[in-house]
Design a protein around this nucleic acid. Structure first.
Lengths: 204, 204, 204, 204
DNA sequence: GATGAATGAGCATTCATTCAT
DNA sequence: CATGAATGAATGCTCATTCAT
């Protein structure tokens, strides 16, 4: 799948928004969020301070723009994959596999998201973030509720499901992105999907 | 259990090391690692810039001192708890319960550790960190190896075990520390211990 | 009397000169001269950077345009009022009353003039300013010279008359515009006219 | 009289507070408040950015420090002069003469005060300013009240007295400081004292 | 005439760290 | 051991102005 972050507008002028966004992502990935200065991004994107501020308002706005685009990029894969599933097990497997595939293919974006999450969550853009998260987890909760009713899924405290399902794969992705393990998330996705299912299923 | 971070020396002078450490932790917790300046800590601890540098060398030294003490504090509970277990399932349950209890009782320290991990890992103190981590995970790996041999634990890629076992509870702890869920980690510890065991066990 | 700054052209387009001028005045009044950016005015007037520069050349030109229009607006009242007077005392009273009335009716413009005076005086528009000031004070000086000759007005150093006549009322206007006193200049105009006359008259 | 701003501490180190304050005043006077950058002051005082911020917090703090010291410097002359007077006329004359003398001797400080007044009044230091103003005008109002009771001074709206008394001399001082008139305030002080008295006296 | 993307010099301010006392 | 004045590189950001469309 082709990500927003790789497309290059044909008639783009020297310093358009997308180009700056791509360069900023590269800087954040290589240097970290704090260590990347606006001037670093200016140099890399070969644009000017003024242009960057003209388009993004401030550094936080730049981070939020990348974060929200990444969230959309990720969700654009997860939503259809989950809709194709025809039972809770399939839906959970689709969620985890698609997530781990995406991380494996977009390691820079994935690393960025872990870094930027708390910043965006405490920024001016919290509203936009909340809106997307609401939509993101809505369908999953429906699946679970249905599964519990049918006796396929254990009835557990509501607030534990998310961690039980995604905690393991997210933890592995963090480890991989941090260089602490070698195997890509994608190649272990089956194992993590299975473990997530076992964690919540009545009879695995 | 009483942590190092709570004891108060009776005849403590205005600015001893422990007092400064406690104040620094409070600042880091309330403001974040980057947002806390050495001067913030000076004000809060009612000491002086000179004294802080005298004791800790630099800001990184201050962070590392807290981090390593917290690691020891946590490990001082986990090690004996795991030693009391007599089978893999018990060891895993001990690990997870003790970890979630500790986080529930030391939320400030726990939050600090998530923040500071990468900083300490890339600092001068990396050596000390690695030494403790080696010891920390050594016994767990032995338990697992033994369990696999006995046919109690599934044979999976080595690098996936840590995430499978600790990922869910760590994820829940992060969520709790971030205010995204309300129930304390401690009160769900059984569920997470059970899920960890199901994830790796041959026959739950 | 209806000021230039309040008239609204019936078929006015979104961004005509007068509308921008009015918005700029409001911004200068609320935020101060330095704190108002060209972009602030653009937002308020719902026009565009390009249009503002098209009409006024630069920020200084915008300030000067308001300043000179305000000066004319004020003078359009003062000149005829002074011409109706038939002795020095009446002329001075007319000057002061008209001035204080105008300030009371145009507080935003008056405040703006105190702020902008030095800027316009050191700008490209100094010439236009000097021309108007010459005309403005010419007739007053004639009145005074005549009064001195007739023995009605004290003979004082030439350079003190202006301050003696207008200093008190101007000071009160500044205080009112700054919110330091409550009564409008207009309601005390008689007192200030009387004091000005006493200050320069041989026999009050 | 020797002002605070001219004394030089003998054992002063390169960049002490008073030296910085003097240099800042010179810069503000020559370039204006806005046009003077902190770096300008750093260069002139041969100190460092850090030192300036260490002592004054920010640019506004620097301005306030000069302003309040100037106010004290001025008041240190006015208070005793007014106390020596034995009737309202003498007190008013003392006030005006001392004020105009001070302006004539401290033109830089006086010019600075006109520039900085509104900035300080809207700053963090408003409280300190108000406290001094209260004390400053208290004794004058007592004199006036007494004079009104004795039938020496006209009974006028309370809020007009300050402008009637000080407006003319202040206006002349502004004109002199701005180069619009040549005679020093001191040399016309008698005239302005007389005019102030006439403005408020029952029988001049 | 109208628009707004692009520009970049310039500014206030922060902050970890040093070192003389 | 303790103190806090001094340091200055680094940073995020502003804003008047230009100019291609």
């Amino acid at each position: 799948m082709e990500s927003v972050f790789e497309r290059v507008e044909p008639g783009a002028r020297k310093a358009n928004k997308r180009h700056i966004l791509n360069c900023a992502l590269a800087c954040f990935d290589e240097l970290g969020l704090e260590a990347t200065t606006v001037d670093t991004i200016r140099q890399r994107s070969n644009s000017s301070i003024g242009t960057i501020y003209h388009h993004f308002g401030n550094k936080e706005g730049l981070v939020a723009a990348i974060y929200l685009a990444a969230l959309d990029d990720q969700q654009a894969l997860i939503t259809p994959a989950m809709e194709l599933a025809d039972d809770p097990k399939g839906a959970i497997a689709a969620l985890i596999k698609t997530y781990m595939d995406w991380v494996s293919q977009q390691p820079r974006l994935a690393r960025f998201m872990f870094q930027a999450r708390s910043l965006v969550a405490s920024s001016h853009f919290k509203g936009e973030l909340d809106a997307r998260n609401k939509q993101r987890y809505g369908s999953l909760l429906n699946y679970l509720a249905e599964g519990v009713k049918k006796g396929e899924i254990r009835s557990l405290p509501r607030e534990t499901y998310a961690s039980l399902l995604i905690g393991q794969s997210e933890n592995y992705c963090r480890a991989w992105l941090g260089g602490r393990v070698k195997g890509t998330p994608a190649e272990h996705a089956e194992i993590f999907a299975e473990a997530a299912w076992r964690s919540v299923a009545c009879s695995p």
